[in-house]
C-alpha cells in the first residue's frame, strides 16, 4: 500500500502526541509524589498516625518536601513512618526538627508537618529518625471542644441569671439602666456644672484684673489698701474666694474621675460598687457646686456695690463706651 505513507506519518503523529499526553501526566503526577527527583529517607515514630496513608504529603514549615513511603508497626504502641524527602531540602532540615501529624484543613487528608526548632543543630543525615509529637487528633479536639462547650453553657446560664436580676431587680445599677429620669437628671447636672465652672473662671479672671488695677493703676485704691481695716476685710474676702475655687476644682476633678470610671469600669461587681459612690458623690458635688457658685455670685455682687470699687467699675464701663465709639 504505497499511498498509505502519509497515513503512516499522521498515525505516528497522533500516537506520539497522545502518548506524550499520557507520559506528561504520569510524569507530573509522579513528580508531585517525588518519584523522579533524588530523595532520601528519614523516619519518625508515632503512637498514633491518625489515618495517615502511603503517599500523604510531608511538609517542612509549610512547604511540600516529600511523601510518606512506608508505615509499619514496631510494637503495640509505636508506629514507624518512613518519609522520602526531596534531596534539595536536606541542608535545611536540622536534627532537632519535630514531626507531627495533622490534617490538611478541616476535611483534608492527613499530612506530616515537620517543624524546625529555634536552637542550632547539625543538618539531618539520610536515614535519621527525628523526634515527633503527638498532635491532638480531630477526635481529641472535638472532646476538648465538648468540655469547653459545657463550660460555656454554665457560664452563659450564670450570666443570664445576672442580667435578668439586673433588669428586674431594684439595685442602683438597674435604676441607672431603667430610670429615664435619673439619666436626664445626670445630664442637667453635668450641664449646670459646665456653666458654673465657666462662670467661676470668668469671675476669677475679672478678680485678678481688679487686684492688678488696685495695685498699680489707681492711686486711690492703693491708699485705701493701706488702710488696715479694709485690707483685712479684703483679705478675708479673697481667702474665702480662694477656698471656694479650690473646693470647686476638687469637686470637678472628682466628677471627672467618677465619670471616667463609670465609662470604663470593668466587671459587673466593680461597676455596682463604684456606682453607689458615684451617685452619692454626684449628688454632693452638685450640691457643693451650687452652693459655691451662689456664694461666688453674691461675693461679686457685693464687690460691685462696694464704694471702693464703684469707681473702677465705672471706669471700665467708660473705656468700653470709648472703644465702641472709636470703632
Amino acid at each position: 500500500m504505497k499511498k498509505s505513507n502519509s497515513h503512516k506519518i499522521k498515525l505516528g503523529l497522533f500516537i506520539i502526541i497522545s502518548s506524550l499526553f499520557l507520559i506528561i501526566a504520569l510524569y507530573f503526577i509522579g513528580n508531585r509524589q517525588n518519584l523522579f527527583s533524588k530523595n532520601f529517607k528519614i523516619s519518625a515514630v508515632f503512637n498514633n498516625v491518625n489515618g495517615l496513608i502511603l503517599g500523604n504529603n510531608v511538609r517542612y514549615s509549610g512547604i511540600n518536601v516529600g511523601t510518606v513511603k512506608n508505615i509499619h508497626m514496631i510494637n503495640d504502641t509505636t508506629i514507624c513512618v518512613d518519609m522520602h524527602i526531596d534531596y534539595k531540602f536536606l541542608k535545611h532540615l536540622k536534627k532537632n526538627a519535630v514531626a507531627g501529624i495533622s490534617s490538611d484543613g478541616l476535611v483534608g487528608s492527613m499530612v506530616i508537618n515537620i517543624a524546625p526548632e529555634k536552637e542550632f543543630a547539625p543538618p539531618l543525615n539520610p536515614g535519621d529518625t527525628i523526634k515527633s509529637y503527638s498532635k491532638i487528633s480531630t477526635n481529641d479536639m472535638l472532646e476538648t471542644l465538648n468540655t469547653t462547650n459545657d463550660n460555656i453553657s454554665l457560664l452563659t446560664s450564670d450570666l443570664l441569671k445576672i442580667t435578668t436580676s439586673i433588669k428586674t431587680g431594684d439595685g442602683t445599677l438597674s435604676m441607672l439602666i431603667n430610670d429615664p429620669e435619673m439619666a436626664t437628671n445626670l445630664k442637667t447636672t453635668v450641664k449646670n456644672l459646665k456653666t458654673a465652672s465657666s462662670s467661676a473662671s470668668n469671675s476669677l479672671n475679672e478678680f485678678n484684673k481688679i487686684i492688678k488695677s488696685i495695685n498699680y493703676n489707681e492711686s486711690m485704691a492703693a491708699v485705701l489698701l493701706s488702710d488696715s481695716v479694709t485690707a483685712l476685710q479684703m483679705k478675708s474676702i479673697i481667702t474665702n474666694l480662694d477656698k471656694s475655687s479650690t473646693g470647686m476644682d476638687a469637686s470637678v476633678s472628682t466628677i471627672n474621675e467618677l465619670l471616667k470610671s463609670l465609662k470604663t469600669s470593668e466587671g459587673s461587681l466593680n461597676y455596682i460598687i463604684k456606682d453607689t459612690l458615684l451617685v452619692k458623690n454626684i449628688d454632693e458635688t452638685v450640691k457643693n457646686i451650687k452652693d459655691g457658685s451662689l456664694k461666688l455670685n453674691e461675693n461679686l455682687e457685693a464687690l460691685k456695690h462696694n464704694f471702693l470699687f464703684r469707681g473702677y467699675f465705672k471706669k471700665i464701663e467708660r473705656q468700653k463706651a470709648k472703644e465702641a465709639k472709636k470703632e
Binding site: M1, K8, L11, I15
Partner: peptide
Amino acid sequence: FNELLLQCYKMGNKSL
C-alpha cells in the same frame, strides 16, 4: 502489520 497500521489510522486519526 500493514493492515494493522491502516486500521489504526482509520480508527485513530479519523476519530480525532
